[in-house]
Design a protein around this nucleic acid. Structure first.
Lengths: 233, 233
DNA sequence: GCAAAAGTGTTTAAACTACACCCATGC
DNA sequence: GCATGGGTGTAGTTTAAACACTTTTGC
């Protein structure tokens, strides 16, 4: 925490809730995971917390979020958006901290390779231990936002690579929404939305009809944030 | 602006976009208006800006928003929600300022009585002059949020008094969305949503069939912000 | 051929839209 | 009665859900 002696007595920090899909070893289905860092000083010494830190003087807010994400996980976010600013006096013992919180989505394949050590670990988003500060509440809100937004916006592809099958995209939706979706209806909904483009390629070597590969259609604008563009790292 | 000498070189401010409905004198229809304050110092001396100010040490963010709203207009918001935090370096000449921006709705009847003087005036939300800082962009985003949210959430009543007719509620929707709505379909949509309750009373003295008076149904929870409650002043 | 997932077609229900029409009041 | 907005009825259209069925691959 940074001490200040101006008349405005709040420190400014930026934190990020980072989501990736990882296969649950028990069920075999993909579920939401997020990386947390162990605190190395008081308050909340040794407890898990969201990656983040103080805001440097000349760094953009989204830039600070992308940087802490890269520093803790080694990953680059495919989607990054401001979540909310938490600033209750008393949310941090020892001095007021106002935290601008971002949420990010990272590609699943890459996430599997991400940094893990004694002080950085991935946790299942729906089964978190008690976290430092009000971070449990923050993750809950980020989860709500992700689950709401995946239904009306075009963010699910951020969990996937350059090309993907509709089955993969459907699995992302199913993992996020925690419910099964009808493959036939899902296909029609996505196709009519114009969010994806057929690459003409197909996946070979599968023991069934080879699925088409699609690509994200970035010529269609997402109608989700009005005048503000969601930052993309 | 506040000068600081800590290693974190950003000042924290809270601003509010305050919306009210006012009849347009030319067309006779209600339109969206908002109060702005004239800047009394550099930068942007004498230009119009959103009401706001630095964040006091022990005041909540929403509390600071409600206070500046009250101080500039004398009004109490019926709806108050965090909009976004703007923090680009360079958005304020003379030193970095991170602004946590709220948006508020105030009752139309009261708004007509609100403070107006040389340094506080109301402007039509869709015809603003060039404002100080990045405030034009902020208002645009707030307008987008209001217009999006009024369609799926239950906030329109915040422009009205304790009781209201469905025609009044429809006029709010029409003013915000800037398009006419079918009275018959509007009635059915609202009634089936359970957002309003019939008070049993009717409006007397009108030269046509007397309309029923409704009240906002606060027992039905709005599904709009997940874990976070929108603050209400 | 068989299993498995890709992909298509069809049926039904629900939601939204447009608009015709009747009702209750002041003048 | 007439004008005016309140309020109801209903038909057509669009959207979403459920599910049967056909297609194409590996083995």
């Amino acid at each position: 925490m940074v001490r200040m002696n101006g008349q405005i007595g709040a420190a400014l920090a930026v934190s990020t809730v980072i989501f990736a899909l990882r296969p649950d070893l028990e069920s075999g289905f993909s579920t939401l995971w997020l990386p947390l860092v162990r605190r190395t000083r008081e308050p909340y010494l040794d407890q898990w917390a969201l990656p983040g830190g103080g805001l440097p003087t000349d760094e953009e807010l989204a830039g600070a979020a992308a940087r802490t994400l890269r520093e803790t996980t080694g990953l680059t976010p495919k989607y990054l958006e401001q979540l909310y600013t938490f600033g209750d006096p008393g949310r941090s013992p020892g001095g007021r901290v106002v935290s601008v919180v971002y949420w990010a989505l990272v590609e699943s394949d890459e996430a599997a390779l991400a940094v893990v050590d004694k002080n950085v670990q991935w946790f299942s988003a729906d089964h978190l231990p008690p976290l430092a500060f009000d971070h449990n509440r923050i993750v809950e809100y980020a989860l709500w936002r992700l689950r709401t937004k995946v239904e009306y916006s075009r963010i699910a592809h951020a969990f996937l690579g350059e090309t993907f099958t509709l089955a993969q995209l459907r699995e992302v939706h199913e993992a996020v929404l925690q419910k099964a979706l009808d493959p036939a209806n899902f296909r029609r909904t996505i196709e009519s939305s114009g969010t994806v483009v057929d690459t003409g390629q197909r996946v070979a070597g599968v023991p069934h009809r080879p699925p088409r590969l699609y690509r994200y259609n970035d010529s269609v604008h997402a109608v989700d944030s009005g005048a503000l563009e969601p930052a993309i790292g």
